[in-house]
Design a protein around this nucleic acid. Structure first.
Length: 695
DNA sequence: TGGTCTACTTAGAACTATAGGA
DNA sequence: TCCTATAGTTCTAAGTAGACCA
C-alpha cells in the first residue's frame, strides 16, 4: 500500500460529500450558523463546476534515505484543486470573502525560497525547494468551527440559603464548576482557590460581600443530571439526527486540499471555554479558559485559495496568511490561563504527517547504525577531567539506558516536573553496589520510580554531582537541554535526546518480537500470538514509563473475575465427581441443575448449569469448562499486568510500525488485530513493508 | 547568552462505540 | 436483546526543540 491511499484524490464522486442537505437547523447558536455556512458553500459549489484539472508535481521528499518502494505510485495523480468541486478563484480578493471584514493584511512566508507566486510554482518544475522549508504548494480548507455561545438555563444556585441571580458569565462559570462537583477536582484546594477567586471577581465592586463557601451549586448540579438523563433517553430518531448533523459539520470542516490531494483536518473545533484541568499539582488548575473569538484566529491558506467563511455572524478572522513553511491551517493565541499558541493541523493520517513520521523512524534507524560509536564516545566523556564533559557523558548515559526525556527548564507557573537535565538532588539516591534510585515526576506528572544498577564510573559521577549539594539543587548544574542536544548533534546530524527514546523503543520491540522463533510462535493460536506481541509492547511501555491511573473499580473487577474462576472450578470438580459416579454405576442419564453464582441481592441466578445426561457429554463439558478457566485466568493475569501500563502511547509514537507489519505478515496475524483503524490509517505508509525488512 | 516565541510531537484522561456474555 | 466491560477515539495538556531577539 502506498501513501497514495493516505490521501484521497479529489474526484467528482467525492465531491458528493458536499452535496446539499435538507436544511433542518432550527435553534440558534454557533453550530447552526456554522451549518448555514456549510450549506451556503455547498450551494455555491453546485453553481461552479469548472474543470480546472492540473497535473500534480513530484512532491517526493528527497531527504528520505530509504526509498519507499511505492513512492512512484504517488506521482501521476490528477486533481481538482478545490474542496468544494473546482472552485479555485485566483482573482478573488480576500477582503471580499465572507467574514473577512476584520482581516488584516495578508502575509506570506516560507523564507526567501518563496519567490514566485504559488500558481507559478505549481505550474513549473521548480527544483529550488528541494532543500527549502516549503511544506506545501497549494493549501485550501474551511477554517475552524467555534463552540456554541453560552445559552442561559436560568437555574439559580443558592447563596446563604437563598436563590441568587447570576449574569451570563457567572452562570456559565458556575455551571462549569458544578460539572466537577462530586469528582476529585472539587476537593483539590488549588482548583477551588483559583476558581473561587475568579468567580467572585465577576461580582466587581461587590465581590467583598460574598463568601464562596456560602454558595450552594446543588440546583445546577441537579439540573445537569436531569439534562444528562434527558439526553440519554432521546429517541433513536433524535440521536440519529444529531449524529447526522455532526457528521455533516465534520465532513465540511475536516476537508482540506493540500497539493491536489484531499486531506483530513485533525481537531478543527476551537477549544470551548471550561475550567482548566492541568495535570498534577498545576498552580493554575480551576482557572477559566476563555472563549476564543474569530478575531483571535489566524487562517493559513494559499494565496489563490478561497478564504474560508467565518461561521460567527458579525465576526471575522484576525489575519489571513500564506505561510508555506509551516503545516498549520489555523492558529490562535490563548492567554487566558497561560500564554500559549494553539494550532489546527491536518490529521495524523495526512501525507504531511506521515512523511514526518517516517522521517522520525528513519532518523532513529540512523542512530542504530551509529550507536556503538556514540556509546564509546560518551563513555570516554564519563572519565573526562572536564566536569562539563563528565555531566554530558552521564546525562547521555541516562537518556540512552533509561529512555529519560531531556528535561527542559520550566517556569514557576507550571507543575513541578523534571526530565534528565532538570533532575534535582532530591530525585536520586546513590545506593551501594553501584545502584542509583530515581524517584521524580516526569511529563504529565507521571511518577518515575526505578532503581538501576549502573556502571561504576556513572555511579561515582552521580555521587560527585550531588556532593555538597542540598535538596533543590540541580543534579546537572553545568549543562542544560540545549547544551546536551548540541553535544548530541556533534555525534550525529539531527540527533537529539528524543531520538534515543524512539530508537530504544523500536529496538526493544524488534528484539522482543525476534524471539518468536524460540518461543515457538508457529505452534501458537492467534490469541497466544497476540499475547506474545502485547508482552513485547509492554516491555517498550515499561522502558518509556507509559502509565495510566488505575481505575476506581479495578479491585472490584478483579474480584469478580476471581469469583467467576472459582465458580468454574467448582463446576469442574462436580462434573468429575458425577462422571466417576456414572462410570461406577453405569448410569448414563444424570441431570441436575446447580446454581453457580447469585447476584448480590441473592434474588437472581447468574449462572444456571445443567449437568449433561451422558458420560460423553460430561466429558465434553469438562473440556469446555477447562478452556474457560484458562481463558479467564489469562484475562485476569493480563489485566493485572497492565494495571498501570498504557500500551497505546508506544504503539502510536515510538514503535516503528514496519516492525509490527512485518511481524504480522510473518506469523499470519491480521494487522487489524495489532493496530486499530486509526493507527492503520496513520501508518498506511508502512503497510506493504517487505518481509525481509527489519528495524 | 539567555529568554521568549513558534511549531510541532507526545501523553493520559475523558468520552464513545463496540463486542461479547448472560 | 440488553447490559457492561473493554477497546477505540477524541481532546487538550505538556512536552521537545529550533528560531529569533535583545
Amino acid at each position: 500500500m502506498s501513501s497514495k491511499k493516505n490521501t484521497k484524490k479529489v474526484s467528482d464522486s467525492e465531491d458528493d460529500d458536499f452535496e446539499e442537505e435538507e436544511d433542518e437547523s432550527e435553534g440558534s447558536g454557533e453550530e447552526d450558523s456554522a451549518e448555514n455556512s456549510v450549506k451556503e458553500e455547498e450551494d455555491e459549489e453546485e453553481e461552479e463546476n469548472g474543470d480546472n484539472e492540473i497535473k500534480e508535481e513530484d512532491n517526493a521528499d528527497t531527504k528520505i534515505e530509504v526509498k519507499d518502494e511505492n513512492e512512484d505510485d504517488e506521482e501521476e495523480e490528477e486533481f481538482k484543486p478545490s474542496i468544494n468541486g473546482n472552485k479555485r478563484k485566483n482573482d478573488t480578493p480576500v477582503e471580499k470573502a465572507a467574514g473577512l471584514s476584520n482581516a488584516k493584511q495578508v502575509k506570506t512566508s516560507g523564507g526567501d525560497a518563496v519567490k514566485k507566486p504559488v500558481q507559478k510554482q505549481q505550474d513549473s518544475d521548480d527544483e529550488d525547494d528541494e532543500n527549502s522549508d516549503i511544506k506545501w504548494k497549494y493549501l485550501e480548507h474551511h477554517g475552524v468551527l467555534f463552540p456554541d455561545y453560552w445559552q442561559k438555563h436560568n437555574v439559580r444556585p443558592r447563596y446563604d440559603g437563598k436563590p441568587i441571580d447570576l449574569n451570563l458569565l457567572q452562570e456559565e462559570m458556575a455551571t462549569y464548576w458544578s460539572q466537577t462537583l462530586g469528582t476529585d477536582w472539587e476537593h483539590k484546594p488549588k482548583y477551588r482557590e483559583n476558581f473561587s477567586k475568579q468567580f467572585l471577581d465577576t461580582f466587581g465592586k461587590d465581590k467583598g460581600k460574598y463568601d464562596f463557601d456560602k454558595f450552594d451549586f446543588t440546583p445546577i448540579k441537579i439540573h445537569l443530571e436531569e439534562q444528562k438523563e434527558i439526553r440519554k433517553n432521546r429517541s433513536k430518531e433524535e440521536k440519529n439526527q444529531e449524529k447526522q448533523k455532526k457528521e455533516r459539520l465534520s465532513d465540511y470542516y475536516a476537508g482540506a486540499i493540500l497539493d491536489g490531494f484531499r486531506e483530513k483536518v485533525g481537531q478543527f473545533m476551537i477549544e470551548p471555554p471550561t475550567l482548566f484541568k492541568g495535570r498534577g499539582e498545576h498552580p493554575k488548575m480551576g482557572m477559566m479558559k476563555g472563549r476564543i473569538q474569530p478575531e483571535a484566529v489566524v487562517i493559513n491558506i494559499s494565496k489563490d485559495a478561497p478564504v474560508p467563511k467565518c461561521s460567527v455572524p458579525g465576526h471575522g478572522w484576525s489575519e489571513i496568511v500564506h505561510k508555506q513553511d509551516v503545516t498549520w491551517l489555523a492558529s490562535y493565541k490563548d492567554d487566558s490561563v497561560k500564554k500559549q499558541h494553539k494550532y489546527i493541523f491536518l490529521s495524523a493520517e495526512s501525507k504531511l504527517k506521515a512523511e514526518n513520521d517516517k522521517k522520525k523512524y528513519e532518523k532513529a534507524r540512523r542512530l542504530k547504525n551509529l550507536i556503538g560509536q556514540i556509546r564509546e564516545n560518551y563513555e570516554r566523556k564519563l572519565r573526562s577531567s572536564d566536569p562539563v564533559d563528565r555531566q554530558l557523558g552521564t546525562a547521555t548515559y541516562l537518556i540512552d539506558k533509561l529512555a529519560l526525556r531531556v528535561g527542559n527548564e520550566k517556569s514557576e507557573e507550571e507543575a513541578d516536573t523534571v526530565g534528565c537535565c532538570s533532575l534535582r538532588v532530591e530525585h536520586i539516591q546513590v545506593i551501594e553496589d553501584t545502584q542509583i534510585g530515581f524517584d521524580f515526576l516526569g511529563k504529565d506528572s507521571m511518577r518515575y520510580q526505578n532503581t538501576v544498577k549502573v556502571t561504576e564510573i556513572v555511579w561515582k559521577n552521580m555521587q560527585s554531582f550531588i556532593k555538597n549539594k542540598k535538596p533543590g539543587d540541580d543534579l546537572f548544574d553545568r549543562i542544560d537541554a540545549s547544551s546536551l542536544n548540541e553535544y548530541l548533534k556533534s555525534q550525529m546530524e539531527g540527533l537529539t535526546a528524543k531520538v534515543f527514546r524512539t530508537y530504544n523503543a523500536s529496538h526493544t520491540l524488534q528484539k522482543e518480537l525476534d524471539k518468536a522463533d524460540e518461543e515457538g510462535l508457529d505452534k501458537m493460536d492467534l490469541k497466544d500470538k497476540l499475547n506474545f506481541y502485547d508482552e513485547a509492547n509492554r516491555n517498550v511501555a515499561i522502558l518509556c514509563n507509559h502509565q495510566k491511573t488505575v481505575g476506581k473499580n479495578f479491585d472490584v473487577m478483579v474480584g469478580k473475575m476471581e469469583q467467576r474462576i472459582n465458580v468454574y472450578k467448582d463446576y469442574e470438580k462436580e462434573l468429575h465427581t458425577h462422571l466417576n459416579k456414572c462410570k461406577k454405576n453405569g448410569v448414563n442419564a444424570y441431570e441436575k441443575e446447580v446454581i453457580l453464582e447469585e447476584k448480590d441481592d441473592g434474588k437472581h441466578k447468574m449462572f444456571v448449569k445443567k449437568f449433561p445426561g451422558t458420560k460423553e457429554k460430561i466429558q465434553e463439558a469438562i473440556e469446555k469448562i477447562k478452556k474457560k478457566i484458562d481463558e479467564e485466568q489469562n484475562k485476569k493475569q493480563s489485566k493485572e499486568k497492565n494495571k498501570e501500563i498504557a500500551l497505546g502511547t508506544s504503539k502510536t509514537n515510538y514503535n516503528d510500525p514496519r516492525i509490527s507489519v512485518v511481524w504480522c505478515k510473518k506469523w499470519e496475524v491480521p494487522v487489524e488485530k495489532v493496530f486499530p483503524k486509526t493507527l492503520i490509517a496513520k501508518f498506511v505508509w508502512a503497510m506493504d513493508t517487505d518481509l525481509e525488512w527489519s528495524f
